[in-house]
Design a protein around this nucleic acid. Sequence first.
DNA 1: CAAATGCATACTGTATACAGTTTATATGAA
DNA 2: TTCATATAAACTGTATACAGTATGCATTTG
Lengths: 220, 220
Amino acid sequence: MHLLETERGNISEAAADAVRAMIVDGRLAAGDRLNEVRLAQQLGLSRTPLREALSGLVAEGALIARPRLGYFVRPLSLEDFEQVYAIRPLLDPEALRLAGIPAAKRIAKLEKLNADLSKAKGVRAIDLDDAWHIELIAECPNKVLVELIRNIMVRTRRYELALMREKVNVGNATTDHEKIIVALKKNDLEAACAALKRNMQSGREPIVTWLKERVARKTK
Amino acid sequence: MHLLETERGNISEAAADAVRAMIVDGRLAAGDRLNEVRLAQQLGLSRTPLREALSGLVAEGALIARPRLGYFVRPLSLEDFEQVYAIRPLLDPEALRLAGIPAAKRIAKLEKLNADLSKAKGVRAIDLDDAWHIELIAECPNKVLVELIRNIMVRTRRYELALMREKVNVGNATTDHEKIIVALKKNDLEAACAALKRNMQSGREPIVTWLKERVARKTK
DNA sequence: CAAATGCATACTGTATACAGTTTATATGAA
DNA sequence: TTCATATAAACTGTATACAGTATGCATTTG
């Protein structure tokens, strides 16, 4: 009898989580070349499982592998941001459409999250915004689609955090979310999807202008 | 001076390509547990680079890793197929929209590919169909989007090939493509996008019914 | 005969060693 | 001083070794 299948992972998985977190929150800065020996020591493991983790992160798009030079944190670039950011408006509305109008209980949760978001600042605001969107599509039967959205989320999060580190106060998306909730309460799924699409497109400008400044500064 | 950076890859990359190919074309069957020692011998390398490749393929969704049991080829399932197949109708039309009406030269190439496709059978037909769609969005400036489409292509290809192995003759999408080309020649980009979306949704039924039969057969 | 137990085998997970390449430093020439 | 060259150090890519876990088979027990 197999009771529960404990499913404790192996060191490689833990390493992947750790490194992914370091990339997203900037402890490993964009463009950095990472030193396998040192990183392995920091994480308390050997290079072999670390490198397995890094291979996975390359496929996820978090790292770039350059033969004989090693692994690099994928640089932040205006081009990459605009391209990645253009994906979610295609995915999220469809996920919501498939999920349908959320149950009353879930709508209440969305309102709660949004209220918290309106008061939140910094990293916590980003966390809450992501949590809100995940909650919104929680009932989506297409799990592949949801997983895809999660991936894109991680990829854009780096930009949001990097911006936040420099500019501090960024207006959050509370009012966008309210509009979506209103539409959902009216049972108007299509209006909600349209509002969601708009929400996914807003939030672009501050990062774009910041990235442009950043490029200008570097080439000064 | 650094001229050209030869960029020859390492063994891990080659291994990833090899294993991916084996999965897509069925030499490694869906659900198979793979034996690292044997596979490494077959490919003529050691387990270390092989395992790095396998880690990457897990992130790509081609394999599943079960701690202490090893790597398994992701099984084919009706659920997975329907979910993966639902993604491209969201992506391809937008990619075409961003690419715009192709130049005359490229349209000619599309017509040529489509003519070949109409006569082709088996694996070659699938190759040509994929090539046709890549050609269609070749000018899309959003390379992240194109890369995403490529990934989904690989993921559905397994199903198409598996079906083909059992049922042989599957009607191809030549007429769908013709409609798209006609719209493009009229400079009607939106009509072309709409036709493309329909094209991406057709081709679903034969595989769905086959997968259902397959499930029925197994649970007999 | 069926089920449980113990043992041998095979395989995965991780560490370590080493070869080949890149990068940094020092040395010498223009 | 500046550029080029040689040399040493550091790092990546790969193989191998070994420990711990799972699997299958034989044996024992009820």
